[in-house]
């Protein structure tokens, strides 16, 4: 194909200035993510001005430590939502996974085996959702809703009371606080293995999405599933994979969450699927699929986390209203996406 023949002039579209225009173009795609960053910064500034003590080591450390599980969940959902699907089961998967994990640990299982079991529980639920969706044509929200109730129900069968993880359990080591910078008084920059795990997950997910054929197929499916099929891409395998990834990461999030809290309960994680979806959407991933960034979802998760901090600091907003606010934010972003997409179609 390397034979050079005169190019037909009529098809060239004056695209001989790739430098500036085309280099800026991808940034237009990532506008929503930038918007999320702007919102995050604005919230930080507002919080600092209104309540103070936001831009400081301890707050930042806590933000990351408290939201590590949410970041992991959001990363998993990014895969699913980029293909145009959804996974409603992640919150319930955390419940069953952490409950099983704590109970096994308390029965004296090897902590490594426990952790592997917890992660695999997530994988199993993800696989089940994926098989239902891909092989039996069940709509994603129905399949994952069923998995959500199945997981929640099984968790409730195991126990309806909080199960406490022994304080000396090795699993809790994941929430060991490492002092990175010793600040004045308690104002230290600390991190935990959990945060490191979340960061690794983000890094690996980023590489998978952007530097592997699997990742590119995920985007291609979200752009147009029928085109992806016609291009001969492994659509079936990839769609199954995203649900397995989402489930597995939910299992991992359960490990992270359990190690931090030390308690597992059947009602753990109620409504977290909404938080995770909101984080992904706020971070600029299109609900209809095809566009999105893992890093955006991280920002989205931090926006939600910071919102909780601000609500607590404010004190005037009842904590019960949190889900309303999350819901409202999600709605606003979904509406914005709808607007942007319909604009784009018109031009």
């Amino acid at each position: 194909m390397s034979i050079l023949i005169d190019r037909p002039t009529s098809v060239s579209e004056g695209g001989s200035r790739p430098s500036l225009v085309s280099r800026l173009k991808p940034n237009v795609e990532s506008l929503p993510t930038l918007a999320a960053v702007v919102i995050f910064v604005a919230m930080v500034v507002y919080g600092e001005v209104a309540y103070g003590r936001i831009v400081q080591f301890s707050t930042i450390s806590n933000l990351l430590i408290n939201n590590a599980y949410l970041i992991i969940l959001a990363v998993g959902l990014t895969f699913v939502i980029v293909t145009g699907g959804v996974d409603l089961s992640v919150g319930a998967v955390i419940a069953i996974s952490s409950l099983v994990g704590v109970m096994l640990a308390n029965q004296g299982w090897n902590p490594i085996a426990v952790i592997i079991a917890m992660i695999l529980i997530g994988s199993v639920f993800g696989t089940a959702s994926g098989v239902l969706i891909q092989y039996f044509n069940v709509q994603p929200f129905i399949a994952t809703l069923a998995m959500m109730f199945l997981a929640r129900g099984l968790a409730s069968m195991l126990s309806t009371t909080p199960e406490r993880l022994a304080d000396d359990s090795p699993i809790r080591l994941f929430s060991t606080e490492w002092k990175v910078i010793d600040g004045p008084k308690i104002n230290d920059l600390v991190t935990t293995p959990n945060v490191v795990i979340a960061a690794l997950v983000v890094l690996v997910a980023f590489l998978v999405l952007h530097r592997t054929r699997l990742g590119r197929t995920v985007y291609a499916i979200g752009g147009s599933e029928s085109s992806a099929l016609l291009m001969g891409l492994p659509v079936v395998r990839t769609k199954l994979a995203v649900y397995v990834i989402s489930g597995t990461l939910a299992g991992l999030a359960a490990v992270v969450y359990t190690s931090k809290l030390g308690i597992a309960q059947n009602i753990t994680g109620v409504g977290w699927e909404l938080d995770a979806i909101a984080a992904v959407i706020i971070g600029g991933t299109l609900l209809t699929g095809g566009a999105g960034f893992v890093l955006g979802s991280v920002v989205g998760a931090l926006v939600l986390g910071l919102m909780n901090v601000l609500i607590t600091r404010d004190g005037g907003i009842p904590p019960e209203a949190t889900t309303i606010i999350t819901g409202a934010i999600l709605l606003v972003f979904v509406l914005l996406q709808r607007l942007v997409v319909s604009r784009k179609r018109k031009t």
Binding site: R211, R213, G223, S224, M231, L233, G290
Partner: peptide, 29 residues
């Protein structure tokens, strides 16, 4: 090649040309 161009318009030109045939190195594509 179909009339309605079965490509993914959320991706770049190069990606569309190479989807499934990307050249891989040590750190992925």
């Amino acid at each position: 090649v179909y009339q309605e161009v079965n490509l993914c318009d959320n991706l770049s030109v190069g990606e569309n040309v190479m989807l499934g045939h990307e050249i891989r190195g040590r750190f992925g594509i």
